[in-house]
């Protein structure tokens, strides 16, 4: 009798309490993990539905003779689509053109964006107005920009040429192979420089005034300050801006479509447009898909390489 009474009344040992506490904690952790998972489930479903599944099925389609309608009945053709993509002179040409465009954009957008950022962070009075003005083109859609500038290049320029008697500089740029390229660059830079500017302004503002003042006291000129203080500390902004301009320029479609539509005689066709044309004008859906996969790989490699290269130069004050 005594024995049994003792068992009931005996206080819990330390180890027991710890064990129970552990168990309780584990249970709680499991439960919060479950809650966490349930919370991200809807987003995960959407992500899988609109990104993962199309991406994977796109890769699968590129190895078949899929005709653009239902996938059932398509045959696997191995690397056939990739072979035809590489032997398509138009595709190769569009790739070269995209590279050329991306390079010009990379240099000009960042150069102009950075200069504008320096201008509107200086002590001029109209800097707030200027900031919004420079940023504004970025808020207009590429298609509309393209159509507006098409009017300027193909109509206004012709009129200007006649009035000023300067037909050598002002003619219909859109129908000239060389100037059509530069008209694309001008519109692209005009649209994107403002966006780059905003990121550079943020970068400039994050530099502590201590460093700048210290260099001033040491008698550094403006040029030296820019070269040895501002630029090294701004590398993170350059990394992000160069990534943005590169990937956007390589993927350019709307300005290309609205401004030149690939003309004159197909010389300004960029990769995205070539992929679209292959699918919907030439009805080679699987080949277009293969081109899109190649397109993705090239953009990924180039941008990763660029980010890697510039982020290695990042320093902190």
């Amino acid at each position: 009798m005594n024995d049994s009474n003792n068992t009931v009344a005996r206080p819990l040992a330390d180890t027991d309490i710890r064990q129970r506490l552990e168990l309780y904690k584990k249970k709680k952790a499991r439960r919060s993990r479950l809650t966490f998972f349930l919370f991200i489930l809807p987003a995960l479903l959407f992500f899988a539905n609109v990104v993962l599944v199309p991406f994977i099925s796109g890769i699968v389609y590129s190895f078949t003779d899929w005709g653009g309608f239902s996938f059932a009945g398509s045959q696997f053709t191995g690397l056939e689509n990739y072979r035809t993509a590489f032997s398509d002179a138009r595709f190769v040409q569009s790739f070269l053109f995209s590279f050329k465009y991306a390079f010009a954009m990379l240099v000009l957008v960042n150069l102009i964006g950075f200069s504008l950022a320096l201008l509107v962070s200086s002590k001029i009075k109209t800097k707030n107005v200027l900031r919004s003005i420079y940023f504004m083109p970025n808020m207009i859609g590429g298609l509309i920009l393209g159509f507006i500038w098409q009017f300027i290049f193909s109509k206004l320029f012709v009129q200007l040429g006649e009035v000023l008697g300067a037909e050598g500089a002002f003619f219909n740029w859109i129908i000239d192979e060389r100037m059509a390229f530069w008209s694309l660059v001008i519109v692209g830079v005009w649209q994107q420089a403002g966006y780059a500017m905003i990121i550079y302004i943020a970068g400039l503002q994050s530099i502590s005034t201590d460093v700048k003042e210290a260099s001033q006291i040491d008698g550094a000129s403006w040029g030296r300050q820019l070269r040895h203080i501002l630029l090294p500390l701004m590398v993170p902004s350059f990394t992000i801006n160069m990534f943005l301009t590169l990937s956007k320029a390589l993927k350019e479609y709307d300005i290309n479509l609205a401004l030149t539509n690939g003309g004159p005689y197909g010389t300004t066709e960029m990769v995205a447009m070539n992929v679209f044309q292959t699918a919907y004008r030439f009805n080679d859906f699987a080949e277009a898909q293969a081109k899109a996969v190649l397109f993705f790989l090239v953009i990924m490699v180039i941008t990763l390489f660029q980010v890697n290269l510039t982020s290695r130069r990042e320093v902190s004050a």
Partner: peptide, 19 residues
């Protein structure tokens, strides 16, 4: 054949531009 509108336009533009 489908796609002739794209290729044909490219070619006739070249013709008009004396290429």
């Amino acid at each position: 054949p489908s796609g002739m509108d794209v290729d044909g336009t490219t070619s006739i533009q070249k013709y008009y531009a004396d290429q």
